[in-house]
Design a protein around this nucleic acid. Structure first.
Lengths: 170, 170
DNA sequence: CTTGGAATGTCAACAAGGCTGACTTAAAAA
DNA sequence: TTTTTAAGTCAGCCTTGTTGACATTCCAAG
């Protein structure tokens, strides 16, 4: 049934008119929506000694338990020095556990401790609540479109990262 | 025909199942897509003496020429001290002009100079090119859904800001 | 006219979280 | 065994956010 996916020109609706103004509105929508997207976890974390960087690390360690530091580096797109500062505090505070690799002892494998999982829950509950409300308000077709456009906006490397996080569903 | 817009339960498709995993994927999509979204202007600005904060200021001054510092503050959601640092360099470098208000001389009205407009063009051309490619790849229905979900994700104040930027179209 | 409040701007100090560069240690390769 | 590579650490810098204190300028109310 020729789902969207290739951009070619079928039923005369492609090669769509895209005025600069329409594109600008999309850009601004991303800007304002991202503010909302990060607002709830930021609120929770301010007051604790953590920030958005800690949230991201916790999120992806939870997502891929046992991941190595290097994997996490690539996922987050930051330098190892920057990540290290965050990981050190999380490990020192007992939210993350770092285990030396068995096959390759140069690697460290990262896991959330029960305390780390508890914080992850608090943060992602808040973020998911906003997401859920937005999805419900927008409806399933809008949600599908939302995901489609976001995927198309990613750099190919990021998109691969993103897709490889599937595993459990979509 | 009862377009999406209210979340109620019509034709049995609302109250949609939203598993935590689906919501997590949406969260990750936002994260990775936002990286792509900012990548091109960031690349242009690194090497110049400017950063993302300058881009944002330039974008919204271009969008609403003559806006006051206070308006810009509210739009950007930063403190005046933070914005001031950015504006000072842009004004010193001749990219932005600050005119004392005629009615209320306390206010400063901000305009891009021709040089400022030139930089704005370079930056937004790059950002729009990515947006245009994503929109084309995803198709018009996906684009509508994308906008709908992003709007639903904003805080009400941000949504008002966002909508008040329309004027010229949608 | 004077005074209070609003809008703007400045200075200083600080924090978060990016970055680069230099280094240690462990593992792998020569 | 020696060299090279990879992972991780430490030190220091930059951008951009924050607060707080304060000066200036102006409008508007008394």
């Amino acid at each position: 049934m020729e789902e969207r996916g290739h951009p070619g020109l079928h039923s005369g609706e492609s090669l769509l008119f895209l005025t600069d103004e329409q594109l600008r509105k999309g850009i601004e929508a991303m800007f304002f929506a991202y503010r909302g997207f990060t607002a709830d976890p930021d609120r929770i974390l301010s007051g604790m000694e953590y920030g958005r960087a800690h949230h991201r690390a916790i999120h992806f360690i939870n997502r891929s338990p046992g991941t190595t530091v290097n994997n996490l580096l690539n996922t987050l797109g930051v330098t190892k020095q920057s990540l290290n500062r965050v990981l050190r505090t999380l490990i020192a505070d007992g939210l993350v556990e770092s285990r030396v690799g068995e096959k390759d002892k140069r690697e460290r494998h990262l896991y959330l401790t029960p305390e780390g999982e508890a914080l992850e829950q608090r943060l992602s509950d808040a973020q998911r609540a906003r997401m859920r409300a937005a999805y419900r308000a927008a409806g399933p077709e809008a949600v599908a479109g939302f995901r489609t456009v976001l995927e198309a906006m990613m750099d190919p490397d990021m998109r691969r990262q993103y897709l490889s996080l599937r595993e459990e569903n979509t």
